[in-house]
Design a protein around this nucleic acid. Sequence first.
DNA 1: TGAGTGTCTGTGAACGTACACAGAGTAGGT
DNA 2: ACCTACTCTGTGTACGTTCACAGACACTCA
Lengths: 340, 340
Amino acid sequence: MVTNPGRRKRATIHDVAAEAGVSRGTVSRVVNNEPYVSAEARIAIEAAIEKVGYVPNTAARNLVMQRSQAVGLIVHEPHSLFLEDPNIGEILLGANSALSRADYQMVSLVIESERDTERVARYLSGGFVDGVVVVSAREQDPITRVIERLDLPAAFVGHPQDLRELPYVGINNRAAARGITERLIGTGRQRIGMIAAALDRDSGSDRLAGFTDALGDRFDPGLVAPVPLYTYADGRDGMRALLARDPLIDGVFAASDVIAAGALNALREAGRRVPEDVGIVGFDDSAWALRCQPLLSTVRQPANGLGQRAAESVLSQLRGEPPVLGGILLDTEIVWRDSA
Amino acid sequence: MVTNPGRRKRATIHDVAAEAGVSRGTVSRVVNNEPYVSAEARIAIEAAIEKVGYVPNTAARNLVMQRSQAVGLIVHEPHSLFLEDPNIGEILLGANSALSRADYQMVSLVIESERDTERVARYLSGGFVDGVVVVSAREQDPITRVIERLDLPAAFVGHPQDLRELPYVGINNRAAARGITERLIGTGRQRIGMIAAALDRDSGSDRLAGFTDALGDRFDPGLVAPVPLYTYADGRDGMRALLARDPLIDGVFAASDVIAAGALNALREAGRRVPEDVGIVGFDDSAWALRCQPLLSTVRQPANGLGQRAAESVLSQLRGEPPVLGGILLDTEIVWRDSA
DNA sequence: TGAGTGTCTGTGAACGTACACAGAGTAGGT
DNA sequence: ACCTACTCTGTGTACGTTCACAGACACTCA
């Protein structure tokens, strides 16, 4: 039987002081690793801490220090994508490892609806977090306004156009998209299309821009199928649309690996062989790329690193260092496999 | 240029009291919705709150109330699985929605290594959370001991054998596995094997037990391929092993949809047609099931609901209600599609 | 009128910590 | 001998809330 009767009270700094025969102040100095404590007092206090099982009370510490020792991770994505897009999970884990290394707690704030935006805005105003990492904000995102108004230390993964002032970390989507499209062109494909997803975000629109850069004069707007999200279903739909518009299409740049996986399904459905009939490339080099048949040629994106760097940016601002202006861009790399 | 000069101080309950011309106590009563406040005072205070932009300080509130208003979600899985197994994400989102509805914050604690166990144990002892939801604990899990020792309100998703005393929520894996295996037998398959994953957890071992229940005398231990984790790669390896042991195998129960997806890959590799040559069924009805070709027959598991119910169990314990002994089992359902 | 009851309000104390300050002691230099 | 500098320690106060208590007032009923 699990009852909860005498939930014994936690030891405080007073208990330690009494046990060690010193004052609160000295104990505090030991706990916070400050100098000016005699070796004698230090060992007595350490023994006392061990004996009474003392752990500092965060609420009290936060109260006096005016901080929460937590950083929010705002994910502004619909439920389904949160589960389907491996990048988000990677970013989350990357941020988490950087934060816990610095003894900060990560609090995940998932926004899916209008109501969530309000809840999160209230949460941010409440001083529950000392800073935020924002993943995949949109243009004119209301949460961005809230962050600006509160003057909360923040870092963005990706950077909406209207965000020039705030620090961000990302990759050069445009250059990377251009690079892999050129490589695809290099395989001799003649009719190259793109399944362009999430055009309301910089990652989506920049990849499309890189695609058109690479094709130059040969760019045919009719061979771009825009879809809303980076999901398997949208990839399949996008490919079906492309096949309907041009049955002779022989090259496809999918805006992400998930999109490519969905597209492969549609191609298989239509009886097209990959890479013989159609060459296809993706973006991300997520777990999906190795799961496709054939193995996907794609752009490797350091998603975990993005999360880490964004978290580190927030941490450095918290230390009072000025944010890096203009953002940080991490390197990408083309990974050439079997699908094109 | 983003500077951070006058980070204006937050309004306190005193500011509100002064603005409204009343005392702290009355403001506190309004904020906490207590009775015995005159209508006059109430509207004056509400106006004052609006005017000065008052938001209660959590640290101060937590300090005096001796709680943290947060619940930990402990995920004890390797990094890779965290991203690959959609159940974990679903459980996480389910728990998060139940907790935020009750104005509790969810703090995710991911354990991947021995060092993480210590960090999390320290975190739990620090009073940072009022309770915990534990996902996929193992037998003899050290974190379980810590929770018991701290007498922390907890709920488990799934239930290791050595946990009889603590509340849990789960499904009847054994009965469900038996049900879908019987259904597979009913399609006339003669040589039925299983790819059994994660036997160190109740979900894994119970599904195997249900499988043997269904086969009865016809059970052939040689046709069970045990693999460590619920991953795509392990599914593929397990299927290769089964094919090596019995090339004539014509039915497979995969311990999860991810496993089944990996197995389908191996079957395609080996030139086997599904469902003509081999019938295969999975478990979970996750996004994977609809992504497979052919569509997967599987058991629907309410992963989101598991997370919600576990969180609600913790919340009710926090309200002082006694935990439900013996656990809560949610219903599952067989979803029959094309793969068998 | 007086006691009793219910409504409303203000005040002091407490939660557990960090920080500034004062003061004691010791050592070194003139 | 004195001043200065450095090391170490204890005490008072502040952080922003909640809660218990006491007191003021109004109303009812004997």
